[in-house]
Computed example of a mutant assay.
Amino acid sequence: MKKGAIYLLQFAVLLLGFVVLTALIRLPLTEGRAVNLDLFHIYTDPFIMYGYATSIPFFFALFMAFKLLTYIGQSQLYSLDAIAAVIKMRYCVIVFSIFTFIAGVLIVLFHDKEDDPAGFISLCIMTILLSIFIAIMAFLFEKKIRKAIELKSKMA
């Protein structure tokens, strides 16, 4: 893969991380139930804190994706380090989808009766489906790398 394409993908990963981090910092200030709260109570709200805890595996998966792109740029795609990065990324995506599922269940159980949780629930479902798709792709990618390493070792 060309260096320019790898740099572009690394930039896209960094940009995605920056956008999500900005949203995590900015959105609680404008969210409906936190509009009348002070800064301390906004950021100590249990649901917002849960969102921050859920973002940890997301950012770790982004870091692993950046690391994998670095390995690709160094022509080390067929290495054990690349496999480890893909495995860690897959586990992070699975943990993220579990956290998202729990958030959806909590909203269904504890939402205000005047609020309609359908929008949040649909976002949870879409996020979980996307996470499952990414986890499956990571598994298939890992399998392909392992097969290539086996073929390479048999040739040598």
Score class of each variant (00 low, 15 high):
77 L>P: 04
21 L>M: 13
86 V>A: 14
71 Y>P: 02
31 E>R: 13
106 L>Q: 08
67 K>H: 05
6 I>E: 01
85 A>T: 04
29 L>H: 13
132 I>S: 00
33 R>K: 14
9 L>A: 12
19 V>Q: 14
68 L>V: 07
87 I>N: 11
94 I>D: 01
139 F>E: 11
75 S>L: 04
115 D>N: 12
97 S>V: 01
140 L>T: 11
66 F>V: 01
28 P>W: 00
16 L>T: 14
97 S>C: 03
8 L>G: 06
44 T>G: 10
51 G>C: 02
128 I>S: 12
67 K>D: 07
89 M>R: 08
54 T>H: 14
134 I>P: 04
48 I>C: 06
55 S>H: 05
125 I>R: 00
139 F>S: 14
106 L>I: 03
100 T>V: 01
52 Y>E: 10
14 L>C: 14
33 R>I: 04
87 I>G: 08
96 F>N: 06
83 I>W: 00
142 E>A: 09
88 K>N: 15
118 A>E: 14
131 S>V: 00
73 G>S: 08
146 R>T: 04
60 F>W: 02
49 M>P: 10
68 L>G: 13
25 I>G: 12
152 K>L: 14
57 P>M: 09
118 A>T: 15
12 A>V: 02
38 D>E: 10
40 F>K: 12
83 I>Q: 04
92 C>D: 03
48 I>M: 04
82 A>N: 06
90 R>A: 01
127 T>S: 15
127 T>C: 10
90 R>L: 00
104 G>W: 01
18 F>I: 08
49 M>L: 14
48 I>W: 02
92 C>E: 02
151 L>S: 12
13 V>N: 06
96 F>E: 06
4 G>Y: 12
138 A>N: 03
108 V>F: 05
6 I>T: 03
101 F>A: 14
17 G>K: 00
100 T>I: 00
3 K>E: 14
49 M>R: 15
45 D>F: 04
115 D>T: 09
67 K>S: 07
85 A>Q: 03
70 T>G: 15
143 K>Y: 06
75 S>V: 04
126 M>F: 10
27 L>W: 13
124 C>T: 15
144 K>P: 04
115 D>M: 05
143 K>C: 07
30 T>D: 08
103 A>L: 05
75 S>W: 01
59 F>A: 12
1 M>S: 15
119 G>K: 09
34 A>H: 10
141 F>R: 05
152 K>V: 04
65 A>M: 13
70 T>V: 13
62 L>Q: 08
52 Y>C: 06
18 F>N: 12
149 I>H: 01
104 G>Q: 04
18 F>A: 15
49 M>T: 15
144 K>T: 15
57 P>N: 15
46 P>G: 08
99 F>M: 07
97 S>G: 07
101 F>T: 12
12 A>I: 00
123 L>G: 15
87 I>M: 07
47 F>T: 09
15 L>W: 02
113 K>T: 11
137 M>S: 09
115 D>K: 11
109 L>F: 09
12 A>F: 03
65 A>Y: 07
144 K>Q: 12
99 F>N: 06
33 R>L: 03
152 K>G: 13
1 M>I: 08
146 R>V: 01
6 I>F: 02
105 V>G: 07
77 L>E: 11
